[in-house]
């Protein structure tokens, strides 16, 4: 029986991993392409959640989770064009500082616009409740979420691997100078990647709003986990991030099963171990321009 319980935690951890994945993947993409660790990523997650609630007020839940990420992704254009772009070639510490500052400004702006009190958010009644498969219990909403994350994942993977857009982006990650020599301007590709990453974060925010508290500091809460996932997976690695997100979910779930008090510490211990044994992360690739 004990084994079944553990297995249930492991499966739940996989679902939870999908939950981290949407945010971590964008963070990783933006880093690979621009060399910028976007500490403001959590702010877009928060904006996605707040935006979805505003839209849902008038047009319903479905419109909220679809339109809010699109609106926030449009903000991403401005973010890339006027801010991030200035820091691709600069000392990474500058982009860290500026995105950190932006995260604080965004959090405080949310507090000024919507107040410090959390906003109420609920999902349509039809999505609530459990799905029981054998001995296992799942949340119906999270299973739906998992399917959406999987679809997004496949979409992003196809985009990067099977399109000319993806070929330029991948070439740009490794050898931006060669891409330039071939007469291709990388800027529009950069913008597109940031829009994609920011949009995914906002999508995560919109979908998580009904199951987690919507408050100004929600972005700061999620960025740490996302960052840990990216570091464990290996900066710049697509499958590394996927693997790490699932791993963090599973490790956290199993730790809470055996040693609940260590639940939140477990992912940091995991990160510590990975960094000790494989400083580049689980599947981290060697990226020439960062060497």
């Amino acid at each position: 029986m004990q084994l079944v319980f553990l297995l249930e935690q492991v499966v739940n951890g996989l679902v939870l991993g999908g939950y981290y994945l949407l945010i971590a993947l964008g963070l990783s993409l933006i880093f690979s392409v621009g060399g910028v660790v976007n500490l403001a990523h959590g702010a877009f997650y928060a904006l996605g959640a707040y935006g979805s609630l505003e839209i849902a007020k008038y047009f319903g839940f479905g419109a909220g989770v679809v339109l809010s990420p699109i609106a926030v992704a449009m903000l991403g254009i401005l973010f890339e064009r006027f801010l991030l772009r200035r820091f691709y070639a600069a000392d990474p510490i500058l982009s860290l500082l500026v995105t950190f500052g932006l995260a604080m400004v965004a959090e405080q702006s949310i507090r000024m616009i919507w107040g410090a009190a959390p906003l109420a958010a609920s999902m349509p009644a039809g999505l609530k409740g459990p799905v029981i498969v054998g001995d296992f219990l799942f949340s119906r909403y999270r299973l739906l979420l998992l399917a959406i994350v999987a679809a997004v994942l496949v979409g992003v993977w196809l985009l990067l691997r099977r399109t000319s857009f993806g070929r330029v982006v991948r070439a740009g990650i490794q050898r931006p100078d060669m891409v330039a020599v071939l007469g291709i301007r990388l800027e529009p590709y950069m913008t597109a990647i940031v829009v994609l990453g920011v949009g995914m974060a906002a999508m995560a925010g919109a979908f998580f709003a009904p199951i987690t508290i919507v408050h100004p500091a929600m972005g700061a809460e999620i960025i740490t986990v996302a960052f840990v996932v990216v570091v464990i997976g290996g900066l710049g690695s697509f499958w590394g991030v996927v693997l790490a997100a699932l791993l963090v979910g599973v490790v956290r779930g199993s730790t809470i099963h055996f040693l609940p008090a260590a639940g939140e510490a477990s992912m940091y211990v995991l990160m510590f171990l990975v960094l000790m044994l494989r400083p580049r992360g689980l599947l981290g690739e060697r990226i020439e321009k960062f060497e």
Binding site: Q9, N12, S139, T212, E221, I256, P260, A261, E264
Partner: peptide, 20 residues
Amino acid sequence: DELVATDVTDFSPYLLKIRQ
């Protein structure tokens, strides 16, 4: 009884323990 850290936002593992 489970002690829950103040920064925990995902309760799903605890909910499963309760069900068990």
